Simulated scan of single mutants.
Amino acid sequence: MNTIHRSTVLIVDDTPDNITLISGLLKDKYNTKVATSGATALQIVASSKVDLILLDIMMPDVDGFETCRRLKADPSSAAIPVVFLTAKSLQEDEAMGRSVGAVDFLRKPVNPDQLFSRVAVHLK
């Protein structure tokens, strides 16, 4: 029996349409999990294996920066690559994201080709 290991991508966004779009794009190649808040994302990561996190920055309660900070502070999740998904395009936002541990940024609206290539690169 030939089972191909599929990486698991956690999509964290407070906008259901964004989750639907991105999980729809990724579902053929990857297992996807979704969270609509940073707190839920942290619970999912604590209880299951996740290989990559696509994380929205602007969310209520716990924003993407704080979620990333918490992920990187926990030894069990510190090695998971975090790619921020954001409509923000300022250098300061990118600098802030990198300072809390993000490996990459994808701008919204998401370009499918960019999404596929960035996800593939960070899962290698």
Rank of each mutant, 00 (worst) to 15 (best):
Gly24Thr: 03
Asp93His: 14
Met58Cys: 10
Leu85Phe: 07
Leu52Cys: 06
Phe105Ile: 05
Ile22Leu: 09
Leu54Tyr: 09
Ala79Val: 00
Glu92Val: 11
Ser48Pro: 01
Arg70Asn: 07
Ile11Trp: 10
Asp28His: 11
Asp113Trp: 08
Asn18Phe: 10
Thr15Val: 14
Gln114Glu: 15
Ile11Tyr: 01
Tyr30Asp: 00
Lys27Cys: 05
Arg118Gln: 11
Ala35Asn: 10
Pro75Val: 11
Ala120Tyr: 07
Ile22His: 02
Pro109Ala: 03
Pro16Asp: 14
Asp104Gly: 01
Asp63His: 04
Arg6Asp: 00
Thr15Asn: 11
Asp51Gly: 05
Ser89Gly: 15
Ile53Ser: 03
Cys68Leu: 04
Leu25Thr: 05
Ile57Leu: 13
Ala35Pro: 05
Val9Trp: 05
Gln114Cys: 07
Ala95Leu: 15
Lys88Met: 15
Leu52Trp: 06
Leu26Gly: 00
Gln43His: 14
Gln43Ile: 04
Ser23Asp: 13
Gly24Pro: 04
Pro60His: 10
Thr36Phe: 11
Asp56Ala: 02
Phe84Glu: 05
Gly101Pro: 00
Arg107Gly: 10
Pro112Arg: 12
Ala87Lys: 04
Gly101Phe: 11
Phe65Trp: 14
Ser23Arg: 15
Ser37Phe: 08
Leu26Ser: 05
Lys108Gln: 12
Leu52Lys: 04
Leu85Thr: 12
Asp56Lys: 02
Leu71Asp: 06
Ala95Arg: 15
Gly101Asn: 11
Ala102Lys: 02
Pro75Lys: 12
Glu92Arg: 09
Val12Gln: 06
Leu115Asn: 03
Ala39His: 01
Ile57Trp: 10
Ala120Trp: 04
Val62Ser: 01
Arg107Ala: 13
Asp14Trp: 09
Thr36Ile: 09
Met58Asp: 05
Ala95Thr: 14
Leu90Tyr: 13
Val62Asp: 06
Asn31Cys: 08
Arg107Cys: 09
Leu85Met: 15
Val45Gln: 04
Val119Arg: 06
Val45Tyr: 14
Gly64Pro: 03
Asp104Thr: 01
